[in-house]
């Protein structure tokens, strides 16, 4: 039964001890500790928030970069394509030009050849005519009394004619 009877002295001293401890701890321990914990938690949540924002920003920048890159790539391929087209066109043009030139040259050459040929033929005709005239003149100039001689002479003349 002794165990269940609180003693006055102990009650009083415990009360005093609790009062003093409560005052000291509340003022010098719990207040700064709880304040610090709050502060730290605020710091942490702020940091997490700002990190999250940063990440979002980074993501935005990244997607922007990617878009830019894609655009650049497309532009490049476009340019390449255009360049290729231009090159092909230039080659085509050059070929066309060259072909035309060649044709023209060939045509020119042919006309020159034709002209030359015609000139040569005309010349030949003239010479043959002349020769015929000369031979006829010579034949006519000789006395055509002897049939035998005549034939002999013609042969002789004919032999002299050299168609060169």
């Amino acid at each position: 039964m002794q165990l269940l009877l609180p003693k006055l002295g102990l009650i009083l001293w415990t009360l005093i001890a609790f009062g003093i401890v409560f005052y000291i701890l509340a003022k010098y321990a719990w207040k700064p500790i709880l304040k610090s914990l709050d502060e730290r938690e605020k710091n942490i949540s702020d940091s997490i928030l700002s990190a999250e924002n940063m990440r979002k920003e980074m993501d935005n920048m990244k997607s922007e970069n990617e878009a830019l890159l894609a655009k650049a790539r497309e532009e490049r391929s476009q340019m390449m394509r255009e360049a290729k087209e231009i090159r092909d066109k230039m080659i085509q043009d050059a070929k066309e030009q060259a072909r035309k030139e060649t044709n023209k040259i060939v045509a020119d050459a042919q006309s020159v050849i034709n002209q030359q040929k015609m000139a040569a033929i005309t010349d030949l005709k003239n010479q043959v005519g002349n020769l015929v005239l000369e031979v006829s003149e010579k034949v006519l100039r000789r006395e055509l009394n002897n049939k035998e001689d005549q034939e002999k002479y013609i042969q002789q003349l004919a032999q002299k004619v050299e168609l060169n």
Partner: peptide, 24 residues
């Protein structure tokens, strides 16, 4: 009991105040 309570509490208060100063 009284003496032990006081000793324990003095020790505890000292510890807690030291911790609080660290936080400060």
């Amino acid at each position: 009991n009284v003496i032990q309570t006081f000793l324990a509490l003095i020790l505890f208060c000292y510890l807690m105040i030291k911790i609080a100063q660290k936080y400060k």
